[in-house]
Design a protein around this nucleic acid. Structure first.
Lengths: 74, 74
DNA sequence: ATATTCGTTATCATATATGATATTATTACT
DNA sequence: AGTAATAATATCATATATGATAACGAATAT
């Protein structure tokens, strides 16, 4: 079982990867999510202990299903 | 995309289902997770906005991979 | 050189998850 | 009836995610 920090980091990497694939900036994604840009940076960098609420907002704004952020993580 | 509340409720239901299948009480699971029993009740009832940290502790104590709590949730 | 864009980091305030504890309800057992 | 076990709920304290804002660095363009 991966550690909490490892999992938050992995989710952050996935968010960044999806965002970059869609060609939008952190600022733009933050706007769509109604999340502070500084927080979006913390999230993508794995420097926070994410909540379901935040993950839902990000998924929704990126148009990916919720489970995609955690799929396969052990 | 399901709402934050729906997803927290679904995760809570899954935790309860796995716990009951393993035949342990909320109190016992709370002990293993190092989480307050009152909080475990809130979690299973979907009355909190879960963090990754808490989900990791529960999964680890139930011996299920992290992704099982969120698998297939859209 | 200097703006501009993008990401990062720092600081402080606020909202809320969780800890800690007590109380209550229900069920089962004696 | 009484006791024990389990779960639910209420209250208050504490820790921390996030909001809000500012400053900084790097890259790019003008």
């Amino acid at each position: 079982m991966a550690s909490e920090k490892d999992i938050n980091a992995e989710i952050g990497r996935r968010i960044r990867q999806i965002r970059e694939k869609q060609g939008i900036t952190q600022h733009e994604l933050a706007l769509r999510c109604d999340i502070e840009a500084s927080n979006m940076c913390r999230i993508e960098s794995g420097n926070t202990n994410l909540t379901v609420k935040t993950m839902v907002r990000v998924c929704s704004s990126l148009n990916v299903p919720f489970y995609k952020l955690t799929e396969g993580i052990k």
